[in-house]
Amino acid sequence: MEWKSNVSVTKGDSYVIADGTHEKKASKEDEYIIAAMEKGICDDEKLLQVIMEQEQYTEMIARLRLAEFVVEYGDYIAPIQRHMKIEM
């Protein structure tokens, strides 16, 4: 998971995500995820690990938690372009 190329993330009292036209103040609950991304953790599996450790969630709940994050900040997250494996 990565931010779009035109997105900037600044940290004041809280994280602010901006794309030059709009900006969004991140909620406290999401800060640790943003912090992980700022540290360079882009792989979804690793982000899930972070969530599971931080919140003591099972994998399923962690997936839902990360999905919430994507829905919340979707305007700023780069869509996946690569061809995905079609799982049976």
Binding site: M60, I61, R63, V71, P79
Partner: peptide, 30 residues
């Protein structure tokens, strides 16, 4: 709204949705 990050959400939600919805979730993500 979800279609804007469709692939991302599909990867994340496939397993939980199939678990939560049971029969109604089979094949849904595809």
């Amino acid at each position: 709204e979800w279609s804007r990050n469709d692939k991302q959400l599909a990867l994340l939600l496939k397993k939980p949705i199939e678990l939560a919805l049971g029969k109604s979730g089979v094949g849904l993500i595809n």
